[in-house]
Measured scan of single mutants.
Amino acid sequence: SEFQINEQVLASWSDSRFYPAKVTAVNKDGTYTVKFYDGVVQTVKHIHVKA
């Protein structure tokens, strides 16, 4: 599913667990740039983002 900029989502971290994050960019290659609550910004594949 498509997510929008500033949408609150759950994004997987390197430990494969999902954490609350905010979408900061929707990228043309189908990835999302997300910002976790601790301030870390990461680009993740769409399969690693869920509502």
Rank of each mutant, 00 (worst) to 15 (best):
S1P: 14
S1F: 13
S1T: 12
E2N: 11
E2V: 11
E2Q: 12
F3N: 03
F3T: 03
Q4K: 12
Q4H: 12
Q4Y: 09
I5D: 04
I5Q: 05
N6D: 12
N6R: 03
N6I: 05
E7L: 06
E7I: 12
E7Y: 03
E7V: 08
Q8C: 15
Q8R: 07
Q8I: 15
Q8S: 13
Q8G: 08
V9W: 04
V9L: 01
V9F: 03
V9P: 02
V9H: 04
L10I: 07
L10K: 00
L10E: 06
L10R: 00
A11P: 02
A11Y: 03
A11V: 13
S12Y: 14
S12L: 15
S12K: 15
W13S: 11
W13I: 12
W13T: 09
W13V: 12
S14M: 14
S14V: 10
S14H: 14
S14A: 13
S14R: 13
S16F: 08
S16T: 11
F18G: 00
F18K: 01
Y19Q: 08
Y19L: 12
Y19P: 01
Y19E: 06
Y19V: 09
Y19M: 10
P20A: 07
P20G: 04
P20I: 03
A21R: 00
A21M: 04
A21C: 07
A21V: 03
K22F: 13
K22D: 05
V23A: 01
V23C: 01
V23L: 07
V23K: 00
T24G: 01
A25R: 08
A25V: 09
A25S: 10
V26Y: 06
V26G: 01
N27K: 01
N27T: 04
N27S: 04
N27M: 05
K28I: 11
D29E: 05
G30L: 04
G30D: 05
T31K: 01
T31S: 12
T31G: 01
Y32W: 05
Y32R: 00
Y32M: 04
Y32K: 00
Y32T: 01
Y32D: 01
T33L: 08
T33R: 05
T33G: 01
T33S: 06
T33W: 05
T33P: 00
T33I: 07
V34G: 01
V34R: 00
V34A: 00
K35W: 08
K35I: 14
K35D: 04
F36I: 02
Y37R: 09
Y37P: 07
Y37F: 13
Y37C: 14
D38A: 02
D38T: 14
D38P: 03
G39Y: 02
V40A: 13
V40W: 12
V40K: 13
V41A: 05
V41K: 05
Q42V: 15
Q42K: 15
Q42I: 15
Q42G: 11
T43H: 08
T43A: 05
T43I: 11
T43C: 07
T43S: 07
T43N: 11
T43G: 02
T43M: 08
V44C: 06
V44F: 04
K45W: 07
K45V: 08
K45C: 12
K45F: 10
H46T: 12
H46C: 13
H46L: 10
H46G: 14
I47N: 13
I47R: 09
I47K: 09
I47A: 13
I47G: 13
I47L: 11
H48G: 05
H48M: 11
V49T: 06
V49D: 06
V49E: 03
V49S: 07
V49Q: 06
K50E: 08
K50V: 11
K50I: 14
A51S: 13
